[in-house]
Write a protein that binds this DNA or RNA. Structure first.
Lengths: 351, 351
DNA sequence: ATCCTCGATGTAAACGGTTACAGTCGAAGG
DNA sequence: CCTTCGACTGTAACCGTTTACATCGAGGAT
């Protein structure tokens, strides 16, 4: 059944049916009613592939993420889906593309299927993207490609990390360990940089150590065990994401090191589990869903108007959320905190 | 740029280009190489809308879920995405459709966009679906429509609930509270039934109470407070999902009721947070990702062959995972457990 | 009464592929 | 040398819409 069937039955031309269904051009009320009646009677729905071909518009946004599960992506997807729905767009999603060739193949397979793309490649070099190849507006999450007309969105990892450091220093901590993320991961990198910058700013009396990690709970556990055995023992641990902080907490518990009495612990991301552990984890909340919504908004800007805005870059602010995993450190005299609990950014991916 | 451009440049016809690109028909090696060279040179990728229209095949599966975020859907999506990728299909996802009209509109908007559908409506009456309306194979998750040729997939909620009861009874518990889920939710309903059936089977000495709930952590908290105050106090609580169990645990802690010493607690779903609380929660693990993979498999069966198999119904088995939130109850003499730790089914949705 | 204007509708050409069918051509068979 | 056959390739119809443009009347202006 197609538009011709409907047209014949309603005694009009296919053009009229199309006009009624799309509602952009004027049609007599009587005609419109007749057509709609037939449409309802037959249960007709336009064939979207044909519509896309003719109107060069798919009403679909392609979303390519490194992965689909985990709390981070789940939340991101929520924001994306919410905003897309609100705007009347569908979402074509795809997860876990590791190498460059795969990504290119995927992007090829998306031509004529989507009106815009939201892409996130924490591990693949984003330069695989050549704008003309795609022919649609692109929004990049968490990475930027300087030369290209891509919109780029991220969160303020550096500011978030700095806020954590200021918080800890304000509580009197002087020996702080930073538990890093995977090499090449942009979020991890920015958090590390933010940490180091804030430490440097805090003055020479603050001793910082950076331990390697990979965002996994198991890596956090391994690091926790090492930290517990370290002498002199650090008084605070800042993990680059919550999963590692959780693993670390577990290891500290096994080593009978009290949190927060003996060691204060901070994470990053504010995943749901952070609220449930004992003690509840102080961490940095990242507006993940908002990130997704904003990505859709920017993508649609690109769809609806000429690509005037090219290569803009935005970072969303983050928030330090204080729970019970940090305590003042009294061995050294605390120095007054300087109001660093507010809003500075960060974010991450694998949960 | 289109297939004609490529054909002209390669000195062949569009039919030949199409043959090379689809690889289903024979083409001389020399021709194939020439065409591929041009394709690569121009960076050509076929327009999928046109391809879908002509070949009446979209290589896309539509997924309609009540929601996209939360641990349950995240995990489900993972399974779906994994299987779809493996089979070379794309995923068109959509979340949060509340009422009937909305669902119908959505299904209409999907015509000509997908080759098959995976649907889940915990709250909407599934009879809104009329098979001919869609024209594609449909797989239903967690609900079934008797009269229609739809494949239906779910998990063994009843068996899982029964396994929990047998476990608790085996530990010597005689006063057990069941914390139910939202009205009209199929999973909640089946878990409740499984609970009641197993209790009845356990004999008259086991006293069961059913408390209302709605799958939310807050409802679990409220119930926990009531349970703590109850006299005689039950010795075990079985929450219909983990979120409520977590809320309940929190309330019990606030009321200074020791878990598991004074009250044993069991959840359902095995969400990640269940491992992180203190004490770790005994619960029922649900093979969510497998459910997703199976859904894709069944959907593709429908795509690739005649709709021979119609209306089949499958339930996946679940597993009781024992952690530290249950303890033997000594007030009454325990009776021997009868091996109910193994595999019986269940599952749920909002996390 | 004739001409114009303008709104409502119809006609038909895209859109960019796939594929049934027809055609070509060299090799093998007679 | 003429057929026959089969492997390749080309021609063109078709997939189901949208939309630029043509058409057709009716009413108003002149």
């Amino acid at each position: 059944m197609n538009v011709r069937t409907v047209a014949a039955r309603a005694g009009v031309s296919t053009a009229t049916v199309s006009r009624v269904l799309n509602g952009k051009e004027v049609v007599t009320e009587a005609t419109r009613e007749k057509v709609l009646a037939v449409v309802k009677e037959l249960g007709y729905a336009p064939h979207q592939a044909a519509r896309s071909l003719a109107a060069r518009r798919t009403d679909t946004i392609g979303v390519v993420l490194p992965d689909l599960h985990g709390e981070f992506y789940s939340e991101l997807l929520r924001g994306l889906s919410l905003a897309a729905r609100r705007e009347g767009f569908h979402l074509l999603v795809s997860g876990s593309h590791s190498d460059r060739g795969e990504v290119q193949a995927l992007l090829g397979a998306l031509r004529g299927r989507v009106d815009a793309l939201v892409l996130m490649f924490p591990d693949v070099d984003p330069r695989v993207l050549s704008a003309p190849l795609l022919g649609v507006p692109v929004v990049l999450l968490d990475c930027s490609v300087p030369g290209q007309p891509f919109h780029s969105l991220g969160i303020d990892n550096r500011g978030g990390a700095a806020a954590v450091v200021r918080h800890l220093v304000g509580l009197g901590h002087r020996r702080i360990v930073f538990l890093g993320g995977p090499k090449g991961n942009l979020d991890a990198e920015e958090r590390r940089r933010g940490f180091l910058a804030a430490v440097a700013e805090a003055g020479a009396e603050v001793k910082a150590t950076v331990l390697p990690g990979d965002f996994s709970e198991r890596a956090g556990h391994a690091a926790g065990a090492r930290i517990a055995a370290r002498r002199p023992r650090p008084t605070a641990v800042f993990a680059a994401n919550d999963a590692m902080a959780l693993g670390c907490l577990q290891a500290l518990r096994e080593a009978a090191v009290a949190v927060p009495e003996e060691i204060s612990l901070v994470g990053f991301d504010d995943i749901p589990a952070a609220r449930h552990v004992q003690p509840p984890l102080t961490t940095v909340r990242v507006p993940i869903a908002e990130l997704g919504e904003l990505a859709i908004a920017r993508a649609l800007e690109g769809v609806r108007q000429e690509p005037t805005t090219r290569g803009r870059e935005e970072r969303l602010p983050v928030t330090l959320v204080e729970r019970a995993s940090c305590a003042p450190q009294r061995e050294q005299k605390p120095r007054p905190e300087r109001g660093a609990d507010g809003s500075q950014p960060t974010r991450r991916r694998r949960t």
